[in-house]
Design a protein around this nucleic acid. Structure first.
Length: 963
RNA sequence: GCCCCCGUAGCCCAACCGGCAGAGGCAGGCCCCUUAAAAGGGUCCGAGUGUGGGUUCGAACCCCACCGGGGGCACCA
């Protein structure tokens, strides 16, 4: 980051500029001085109701609380540009406004610092990640300070601080120490599960007891396995994206559609590995339902709904020899149209079902060219495993698969259906098996075409439908047996009837499935939180006791992951921590004497630290508790019956719509269930700030030229005399259109930069960056400055004696009301427009040397303060106030000056405006009509015509409907 | 392919519950200040709301279709 921001640029004011004009140089001096003073006086410190940070709470005890925060930055080492501060400034204006307006405002900032980008940056620069990360944090912190944001610096921390990640580990242990009680619909401590199993009031959940014997007959190790299988954090073997070239597994988001790593472009392979998982799927219903209780944008809620992907349907069983294939379908109504069955290549029944030999006359398309089904299946499975999940989903075109050589029986009509494996059926969704209905499902139709399978229509397509799958509505056809008929029914009734029949006959049941999968929580990386887990002599996980937290990330000689040849698919990850041999083996006394344990060497994903940081702001220094319950109740607790509680305003980029926000909600609900927090949701209200893009320019060869050097003439653009082409896109080095906050602060000062960014639109809106337009904000601040300060002498111009005239009072109070409206709805552009109007009024009304009354100048300064705090503080101080205005009351508009005595209303004929009449502001409909009819012009227009109807809207218009 | 959001002056954006389309800024014109200049001051200039229908006394706003832009999901059974 450049240093220009902290050093006043040379005064561009040559001779001719008044000595006390608000120039960039003066702005710089004012800003640095006030930033020092705010820091020295703790102006922006927020008192807690209790505990370490409670000094000064008396002064705010009767105020409502308001907790506003940003998604904290990730200091990756890439340079910041003018788009980054937008959200930070939006929360800062809100914070300053609400504090002045009487709230106890909490506005903190921290740093998200574990994770792959920081690690990769460190590897590239040859520095330890802690060194580069801390340097990047220091740079961002300095930049935020230079912007004048009012974060309470006592509450700042980074996720890499041991005092913070101690509690990240502690939360992991709470999740590990819990299970989800389906009947209660919430998490409970694991000890309660054990007690119920011991008492015989509960049976192990299906699939959790591989030994198969009753709990009472299990030995200790078997019992631990049963319990471990119930935990919300559990070990699970799952296929993951293994990237030998990077030596680590990658999340799906880190793998490109063609199956390579986002970083480095190395091949990625799917490989089963034992991983820590978090049982987020247990919360799918609550995560979905509680969206309705949040004040978030519809689009964001929709993204979460899509991600959770709830669908209702039926699970039904097709018998296949001695086995039974369970399929999931959302369309049980189309069961009569099922002509084959498909199971995922990795389905556990594949081996058991595969026939020994192809029957005589098997269609060659079904065999994959193999001599026996077993060979075909093995080949196909190998082929499928080579592709990453994303690859497999994206290929999407030609359907592939092989026949297992067996058939299953359609329970509704006894029809024999061939059973295939095909990779268009996914292991992780539903039951990993489907009934294929080519008549009503596009994918099934495509497969049926390739494999020559029959199509039976069970929904009547509209007339003229040409073929293919008909997925729309229509009456049921071809759907009857001796006991049940769906023919003629619509979809919903058909589903209801067939489901009832299937349930009655024991063939299936109604069910709900989710797209959401459990959260893969392990990373084979160095730069993350170590798991507070050790393994005993049975290789079973054991929690590290709370008193031994944090489990510190050990120093290692080589923190980079071990890498392999790009295409070495059979290599296995080697976590950097596993090389810290004196760390991985540990002797501990966990209650039955000192024993040797092996530490978990995976680390947590970088989402872990951001899952709960909002709780830590309440008191980051608390070493006794994750969060004091009293503080949590005060800052985050529900505001009333049915309220979910949470942060009052959370601002951040829409790119975190699903992962971070879903994970944080999940953890919060676990903590709620376990009684550690009183709020049900972490973020009551969430706003996504818009993006700032910028123009970029290409020359005749198509190369980008530096945008800062391009000149506009008559709507055309030139660089060094040659015409260039204008494009629009992301700000960055590659488009050569980078503009940094430091440059802007250097050229104009932080206040001008703040006002410009806030003036370009509502916070949610994306907007273009236009450096040349910044001057408008500069001019506004200069005019305001001139209202208070004489540019020639530096003397205060405000007039103590003068009384404002009525027009000025109206302008003032209209401005106050408008600014309040803009600030409380995050439409800072409107607030700035109202301030501009007032300023323009004052410069006109008090031109030629007359002085603005103090009673107008002071509220002008106050309403400006949240947007441009430094210049406002300076003017406030020059107006004779010793105290910072950060705590001064925000002006309140006097209704008296907002209402007009008379208003001009439009007179319409058939909706077209024909005249204007003045009426008393409080005139009712009858009065309006009377006044309108009395108007000469209107009377003329109405003469000789029949008035059929009169619509009069008080204060707005009269509309005569004439025949 | 499915779903969501958005189209208002040359540009960025306002417009309350459906009630006279314009607040503010940029750009542009003119004037003033200035030896000169401008990141100074003043003043002027602006569209009928993407297109086509519909509902309504009245539509930027509600409904339908289309066009354009942005975003999300994408073999999820």
């Amino acid at each position: 980051m450049s240093q220009t921001a902290s050093q006043p640029s040379t005064d561009p004011a040559a001779e001719g500029t008044p000595p006390h004009r608000y120039t960039p140089a003066l702005a710089q001096r004012i800003e640095l001085a006030w930033q020092d003073r705010w820091a020295a006086e703790g102006t922006c410190h927020t008192p807690n109701p209790t505990g370490r940070l409670s000094a000064g709470f008396d002064r705010v005890a009767d105020r409502p609380k308001f907790f506003v925060m940003d998604m904290f930055p990730y200091p990756s080492g890439a340079g910041l540009h003018v788009g980054h501060p937008l959200g930070y400034l939006g929360t800062d204006v809100t914070s300053r406004f609400r504090r002045m307006d009487g709230d106890n405002v909490l506005h903190p900032m921290g740093y998200d610092a574990f994770g792959l980008p920081a690690e990769q940056y460190a590897v590239q620069t040859g520095q330890h990640p802690r060194v580069t990360t801390e340097a990047n944090i220091a740079a961002i912190r300095a930049q935020l300070r230079r912007l004048g944001v009012d974060h309470d610096d006592r509450r700042s921390f980074a996720t890499i601080d041991p005092g913070y990640y101690k509690w990240t580990q502690w939360i992991f242990l709470q999740v590990f120490g819990s299970w989800f009680d389906e009947e209660a619909g919430r998490a409970r401590p694991i000890a309660e599960l054990v007690a119920e199993l011991d008492a015989g009031t509960r049976e192990p959940a299906p699939g959790s007891n591989p030994a198969g014997r009753p709990w009472a007959e299990l030995d200790d190790v078997e019992r631990r396995r049963v319990v471990d299988a119930h935990r919300l954090a559990y070990l699970h073997e799952a296929p993951v994206n293994w990237c030998p070239g990077l030596g680590t597994v990658l999340s799906n988001e880190e793998v490109t559609p063609d199956g390579r790593s986002e970083r480095g472009n190395f091949p990625v392979f799917r490989r089963p590995l034992t991983q820590w998982m978090m049982r987020i799927t247990a919360y799918a219903d609550r995560l979905l339902a509680d969206l309705d209780r949040l004040d978030w944008s519809d689009s964001l809620k929709l993204m979460q709904r899509n991600w959770i992907g709830r669908s209702t349907g039926a699970r039904l069983r097709f018998s296949c020899g001695a086995e039974s294939i369970e399929v999931f379908t959302t369309r049980p109504d189309t069961l009569f149209g099922a002509t084959y069955v498909v199971i995922a290549p990795e389905h556990p029944l594949v081996d058991a079902l595969t026939a020994d030999a192809w029957p005589e006359g098997t269609d060659p398309r079904w065999t994959g060219g193999a001599t026996t089904p077993a060979v075909a299946v093995a080949d196909y499975q190998r082929q499928a495993s080579r592709r990453s999940e994303l690859d497999r989903q994206n290929e999407a075109r030609e359907k592939t698969g092989v026949w297992l050589g067996v058939t299953a029986v359609n329970p509704v009509n006894g029809r024999e259906l061939p059973v295939f494996i095909a990779d268009y059926v996914l292991t992780g969704y539903g039951t990993g098996a489907i009934m294929a209905v080519p008549g009503e499902d596009t994918r099934d139709f495509e497969f049926a075409e390739v494999f020559g399978l029959p199509v039976v229509r069970t929904v009547q397509p509209p007339e003229g439908f040409e073929g293919g799958a008909w997925t729309g509505a229509g009456a049921m056809i071809n759907s009857a047996n001796d006991e049940v008929s769906l023919d003629g029914l619509a979809k919903a009734e058909a589903i209801e009837r067939i489901t009832a029949w299937l349930v009655a006959r024991g063939h299936g049941e109604a069910t709900t499935t989710y797209k959401l999968r459990d959260w893969l929580f392990s990373r084979q990386r160095y730069w993350g939180e170590p798991f507070p887990i050790v393994y005993d002599e049975h290789d079973l996980p054991v929690a590290v006791p709370d008193r031994m937290l944090p489990v510190l990330l050990p120093e290692v000689d080589d923190y980079s992951p071990k890498t392999f040849a790009d295409d070495d698919a059979d290599s296995a990850p080697e976590p950097p921590l596993s090389r810290a041999t004196e760390w991985t083996t540990v002797e501990m006394d966990l209650g039955d004497g000192p024993r040797t344990y092996r530490r978990e060497t995976n680390t947590m994903p970088n989402w872990a630290g951001s899952c709960w940081y909002y709780l830590r702001y309440l008191d980051p220094g608390d070493d006794e508790r994750m969060v004091d319950p009293e503080l949590e109740r005060y800052w985050l607790g529900p505001r009333g019956e049915g309220d979910v509680g949470g942060v009052d305003l959370y601002v951040g980029g829409v790119e975190h719509a699903v992962l971070h926000l879903l994970y944080a909600r999940f953890w919060h609900k676990v903590l709620f269930d376990l009684g550690y927090v009183s709020s049900e949701e972490p973020f009551r209200r969430l706003v996504n700030q818009g993006y700032i893009s910028a123009y970029a320019y290409t020359d005749a060869r198509g190369f980008y030229v530096p945008a800062a050097e391009v000149e506009e003439r008559d709507g055309r653009f030139f660089h060094g005399g040659a015409e260039v082409n204008r494009e629009y896109g992301k700000i960055g080095k590659s488009l050569k259109n980078m503009v940094t906050p430091d440059e802007m602060i250097g050229a104009y000062g932080a206040d001008t930069f703040r006002v410009y960014e806030m003036s370009t639109g509502p916070l949610e809106q994306s907007r273009p960056w236009e450096t040349k337009a910044v001057v408008g904000s500069q001019r506004l601040l200069q005019r305001i400055w001139r209202v208070v300060v004489d540019e020639e002498t530096g003397a205060v111009r405000a007039d103590d004696a003068a009384e404002p005239d009525e027009g000025t009072l109206r302008a003032l109070h209209r401005a106050i009301a408008g600014v309040r409206d803009g600030m409380s709805t995050l439409r800072f552009n409107i607030a700035i427009a109202r301030i501009t109007e007032l300023t323009n009024h004052l410069t006109q009304a008090y031109g030629d040397g007359r002085r603005v009354p103090r009673s107008v100048a002071e509220p002008l300064v106050l309403v400006l303060a949240p947007l441009a705090p430094h210049i406002a503080e300076e003017l406030w101080s020059r107006l004779g106030h010793g105290e910072s205005l950060a705590w001064a009351p925000f002006p309140v508009a006097d209704e008296r000056w907002l209402v007009e005595d008379t208003v001009q209303v439009a007179v319409q004929l058939n909706g077209k405006v024909r005249a204007q009449v003045d009426v008393a502001a409080d005139a009712d409909a009858a009065g309006l009509e009377e006044a309108a009819r009395a108007d000469e012009k209107v009377a003329g227009l109405l003469a000789g015509r029949t008035v059929r109807r009169v619509i009069a809207v008080p204060g707005r218009l009269v509309n005569f409907v004439v025949g």
